[in-house]
Write a protein that binds this DNA or RNA. Structure first.
Lengths: 115, 115
DNA sequence: TAGGGTGCTTACTAAAAAGTATGTAAAATT
DNA sequence: AATTTTACATACTTTTTAGTAAGCACCCTA
């Protein structure tokens, strides 16, 4: 899924797109979250994906990563200023999704991707 | 990419997710757009994808499809009320992307998905 | 009668994203 | 010495998503 360098929307999607990113950002919210904590909060994500996306988001300046020099390891993730700007987007998407769910209880078709 | 039936965000993403959906919705905006018009406005989309996503979005109640009984065929697509609610989401994503682009000119890393 | 335009279908292929399984380090506990 | 804990790495496979290419129907015009 290559990105059009000139389009703001696809630039944004290169960060918030994908199956897990919004979920991860949402679960961190305004807290500091440890790796294992996130794993527990998103039980359906695989470890590989969690690691990979945390790394991607950190590299993109969306997350802060603070590693303590302890054994066993302890690492805390939190949103950067940039990352916090994604929270209102999630709110809006969530509101839209909520509406959809209400209406679909009144019997509407859903998209092919979910089947 | 199966969807969690109970999560509003993933419900929303099952509609606005994917490479082309937001783009298509954005290009329709508040207008009536013919199939060929959309093809021209999104030159990088393949015909197959455009057809497929128009069908999906129509089936999901996001688009109206009006076919005129003419030869050669003429079909117009427009956003339903439901679909219009996606426009402000796009605006917000776009604003976020614009910010990112400005900052990245000051030299920041981008995510793995774009490489 | 051979194209041309329009919206759409289908079979097939390729690429991208996600999942599974297994392994590592290093100290602390048993 | 074996086991646990925590964060992460890597090879490999499967699933999902997107792209290519070809064809169809219908009428009109050259």
């Amino acid at each position: 899924m290559l990105k059009d360098e000139t389009c703001p929307v696809s630039t944004a999607l290169s960060i918030i797109g994908g199956k897990w990113r919004l979920q991860i950002i949402f679960q961190i919210g305004n807290e500091k979250r440890r790796f294992g904590e996130l794993k527990r909060r998103i039980p359906t994500i695989s470890e590989k994906m969690l690691i990979q996306e945390l790394k991607n988001l950190t590299g993109a300046g969306i997350l802060n990563r603070k590693a303590y020099n302890e054994i066993p390891p302890k690492v805390e993730y939190s949103l950067t200023e940039e990352g916090q700007k994604i929270l209102p987007i999630i709110d809006q998407i969530k509101a839209f999704g909520t509406e959809l769910m209400e209406k679909s209880n009144a019997g509407k078709a859903n998209l092919g991707t979910s089947e």
